[in-house]
Write a protein that binds this DNA or RNA. Structure first.
Length: 268
DNA sequence: AACCCCGTCAACCGCTACTAT
DNA sequence: GATAGTAGCGGTTGACGGGGT
């Protein structure tokens, strides 16, 4: 279909922003607010592409930005969020007030990666570097059988919050990303048949969930963590996490409520 | 002083998702 | 449903500065 260029390249400045350009952008946004980036440069008298203006404002000029070094607490928070969300820098940034996705991404690549390597952890998977993955089926049949029995027991108890497994996996950061074992009620999918069949593989029956998670090479705590599943094997059935969460509205007891809450939080 | 190497980070680019028509 | 326009995301690039030789 062809896309028109976002700006006239011949008449736009590139590279580092000057103080004057910054001031023009700030004063324009102070008066007119954010948004409509395409028309902003012309209206503000800037010879810049709209995208460039947006980036400059979001990553550098916004008044609520927290400049300066990352604290040890922020480091640990980033590591934990990354272990849950993967390279979803904007989602991670959403949990760190005053920090931008670009800033966190750069910081990750320059500092945290090295920090994790020095701890003997793979920065992508957050697992020990020397650990073999995924687990070989034959070596773990007994363990799988045990987990399957525990899961079935849990369903029979009529409880499906999955919180204990969450706590195993991430005790301090509770993003409530868990998908617990479902009730036996028939789900009514609000999503497409394709999406629903994928969700069903994970959630409609303990044995199926176990098979899929096992196939993915996940361990017990990972079984019910969608973000982990997508991260560990690059398995992202719905395009992205936000879309995935929108699809998870089938009956799952209290989990449904918890996921709805998460959806709202992530959207913020 | 001159050069090189490397780390950092602002900015860019290409792409996808979303929205409007 | 198809098409076009826009916003936003994540990977990559390149300028810059500091340290070493």
């Amino acid at each position: 279909m062809g896309r028109s260029p976002c700006c006239e390249k011949a008449h736009t400045n590139k590279g580092a922003w000057t103080k004057e350009e910054d001031e023009r952008l700030i004063s324009y946004i102070k008066v007119h607010g954010e948004g409509c980036w395409r028309s902003l440069p012309k209206a503000a008298g800037l010879l810049r592409c709209g995208k460039s203006c947006r980036l400059r404002w979001i990553n550098y000029l916004r008044p609520d930005l927290k400049r300066g070094n990352f604290t040890e607490e922020e480091d640990e928070l980033i590591i934990k969020l990354h272990s849950l969300l993967g390279n979803k820098w904007s989602l991670i940034a959403g949990r760190l007030p005053g920090r931008t996705d670009n800033e966190i991404k750069n910081y990750w690549n320059t500092h945290i990666k090295r920090k994790l390597l020095s701890r003997g952890l793979d920065p992508q998977t957050h697992r020990p570097l020397n650990r073999a993955a995924p687990i070989a089926l034959s070596e773990n049949l007994r363990a799988v059988d045990k987990v399957a029995r525990e899961m079935t027991d849990s369903v029979e108890d009529g409880h499906s919050s999955g919180t204990s497994m969450d706590e195993d996996h991430s005790s301090e950061i509770n993003l409530e990303l868990s998908i617990s074992l479902p009730y036996s009620t028939s789900p009514k999918p609000p999503c497409s048949p394709d999406q629903f069949s994928t969700i069903n593989k994970v959630a409609s029956a303990p044995s199926q969930a176990l098979c899929l998670c096992y196939d993915l090479g996940l361990q017990r705590g990972d079984c019910f963590n969608l973000a982990s599943a997508t991260r560990l094997r690059g398995w992202n059935p719905f395009g992205n996490l936000a879309t995935a969460l929108q699809g998870l509205e089938f009956p799952l007891g209290e989990t449904e409520t918890r996921l709805a809450k998460l959806k709202v939080e992530l959207a913020q």
